[in-house]
């Protein structure tokens, strides 16, 4: 039994190899980008808009609202990163309804990659808000003694992000697989439905935590300034 889609390798050349995780990610990326491009190709700024445009506007404004609620004043600045995190994870998790589909988020490599992205994004936005020195100073606040704790906090939360998402998605898939072998009728459907819910919740948790970390970095520098 394969626990991760990483284990399904299609092509390999030394360090480079093409596994199911990467291929599935490309397919998801293609669907997301082409779908968005098709819908936004004929956008209207009037009062009457298409249903698809309405759905996309709802999604984008919803993400914007969430970012704002967390405490970031200019959500347009962060929506590309946070919105993509949410949409990618949510879309990847929702697709579990398709048979034989294995979500890339069930791969620790993918969740680690996303966690690393968040790990990089936090100092990126923090430095963008108050400069490099200002951001580094936030690690020795309120005293220098806090520096190791802050560093541990950064590393541990990145690890927590990766493990949380991977654990939830992998366990969901595993539970469904086990149930199919035991009771192939009804129960796997219920568990798949639960998996959909879990997937959406995980996407929300992941992106909201990323937002909170970025907001904390930006706010921290703001507070230091004040």
């Amino acid at each position: 039994m394969k626990l991760s889609p990483d284990e399904t390798v299609f092509w390999e050349y030394g360090f480079f190899h093409l596994n199911l995780t990467i291929v599935t990610t490309w397919v998801l990326m293609f669907v997301l980008v082409v779908g968005s491009a098709l819908i936004t190709r004929n956008l209207k700024s009037g009062m009457k808009i298409s249903r698809w445009q309405c759905i996309l506007e709802m999604v984008v404004t919803g993400i914007n609202g969430q970012i704002k609620e967390v405490g970031l004043d200019k959500p347009e600045k962060y929506i590309a990163f946070i919105g993509t995190l949410f949409l990618f994870i949510a879309f990847a998790n929702v697709c579990i309804i398709f048979p034989w589909y294995e979500p890339p988020t069930g791969s620790l490599s993918t969740t680690a990659a996303l966690a690393v992205c968040v790990f990089m994004a936090v100092p990126f936005y923090g430095v963008g808000a108050d400069g490099f020195v200002g951001y580094l100073k936030s690690y020795i606040e309120p005293t220098v003694i806090m520096l190791p704790f802050n560093l541990i906090s950064e590393a541990s939360r990145t690890l927590a992000l990766a493990i949380r998402l991977f654990g939830n998605m992998m366990s969901g898939g595993l539970v469904v697989a086990i149930l199919i072998s035991i009771t192939p009728l009804i129960f796997p459907i219920i568990m798949s439905a639960l998996g959909l819910l879990t997937g959406m919740v995980q996407a929300y948790i992941f992106s909201i935590l990323a937002t909170v970390y970025i907001a904390a970095a930006v706010k921290k520098t703001d507070t230091t300034e004040n």
């Binding site: 990467i22 936004t40 590309a80």
Partner: peptide, 24 residues
């Protein structure tokens, strides 16, 4: 799998750019 991690990081940033360009 570190290659997958790197590939996914790249994929993710590409996706960020594309969605920014075609969606947001």
């Amino acid at each position: 799998d570190w290659f997958t991690v790197i590939a996914q990081i790249l994929n993710f940033f590409i996706l960020v750019y594309l969605l920014k360009r075609f969606l947001y």
